[in-house]
Design a protein around this nucleic acid. Structure first.
Lengths: 219, 219
DNA sequence: TATATTATGTTAGCAATTTAACAAAGGAGT
DNA sequence: ACTCCTTTGTTAAATTGCTAACATAATATA
């Protein structure tokens, strides 16, 4: 009944929600240790139960009518769908504060995402060790990618070198790029890109704040 | 014709795109200094021209039939819609790497967002100065909020203190919270919240990578 | 001046997503 | 065993959001 291969294209919003479900499940308190209903899960992330079931339905569902969901099954199923069930190696280029913040992100290991390299051009950073990984010069990138079969590249450089960093990654065979620089980067279409533009979130917050106060003022 | 008050609720996706338009316009090269068409703008962020015009239409449009858009008008109009036209003061709580990365984000000033306080509990960080702002103890938060009429609070603390940090902000009158901790925080409904869950982006990337390689393998 | 071209604003049709409704299935209590 | 309650899977309706088509307007060119 479960882990059915989806025939149709899955909506982007569904994928984001699956990630949120998984995130939510991983920080569940004790009392939900074993089972959870779509109603309870939905409430925790401010959605309707139907939405949860419909999202799961794209993949054939994770439970059985009458039962509640087994938390363990959900986690395993979601991880498989999201491609977190087999190990991927990653590198980070740009070891400023943002790069170090990402490098220290504790959840990577649990998700099967393995950090194997840190790179910068700043000589003062090279040689520094973060979470047992030594910061190396960007000239060493090709070597590390090949040695560790790196599939994911994380760009936390300044905007003006983001594109050339991406090019370097692509040339050496990286298949996925997580880009934190404000500039959109381009790559061949067989390389997947996830842009993480912080300003979008902040502007959205600003808009919400504005409309909320407007509503308040006109009431 | 422009800056009409929208009667209907604006889709969340439209707001995100407005932010992306503004971001795109601010990094435009010289040749587009004065004018840009919906076609050109759309191409830069991988959308269709109709989408751009439709998004603008919610607010009455920013141009005139026949003309192209004036870049300056677009920027001013988008800033007004997004609430970036009047100054807002912000504080950051949690001055780890992520907090420092956010604090060093250069674009705040241009967007009318003014950082006025940095806070942490770690005595080794207190007293440190970042961008002319001294890191203070979290006990000083109420004082700074009142003194500077702070409206936006940024949470870059560890997950286990995120909720109490939010509570402290809310009690002291903060109206908007930008939350970087992986836990969803709750607040009264007159306080707006923007959760920035990095894991969602990474999981999305992982999903894309998985489906891309699957397609490649079955071809 | 007339015409072709390019542009935006606007409306309507279409596609996609969300929500609601219901059938099937298990557990609890009588 | 039977009924009631809760739950998931599934289908259908309703809603929302996107795209295409077109009217209007300006510029450039002949």
């Amino acid at each position: 009944m479960s882990d059915k291969q989806p025939k149709k294209k899955i909506p982007q919003m569904t994928i984001s929600r699956l990630a949120r479900y998984l995130n939510c499940l991983s920080l569940l308190p004790e009392e939900y240790d074993k089972e959870i209903s779509s109603k309870e899960l939905a409430a925790r992330i401010d959605l309707k139960p139907t939405q949860v079931r419909q999202d799961f339905h794209h993949f054939g569902g994770f439970g059985q009518a009458g039962y509640r969901y087994k938390v363990e099954d959900l986690i395993i199923g979601l991880e498989r769908i999201l491609g977190l069930d087999n190990l991927q190696n990653m590198i980070i280029v740009g070891v400023g504060h943002l790069g170090q913040a990402v490098a220290n992100y504790r959840k990577f290991e649990r998700l099967g995402l393995n950090l194997v390299g840190l790179f910068d051009i700043n000589p003062r950073l090279i040689g520094l060790t973060i979470r047992d990984i030594r910061v190396r010069d960007i000239d060493d990138i090709p070597e590390v990618i090949k040695e560790h079969k790196v599939s994911i590249g994380i760009i936390t450089t300044p905007a003006d070198v983001a594109q050339e960093t991406a090019n370097l990654m692509v040339i050496n065979g990286i298949k996925a790029i997580w880009n934190f620089s404000p500039k959109n980067i381009s790559a061949p279409h067989n390389v997947v890109i996830q842009n993480e533009h912080l300003s979008v979130g902040l502007m959205t917050l600003s808009y919400k704040l504005k409309t909320a106060t407007e509503e308040y003022n006109t009431k």
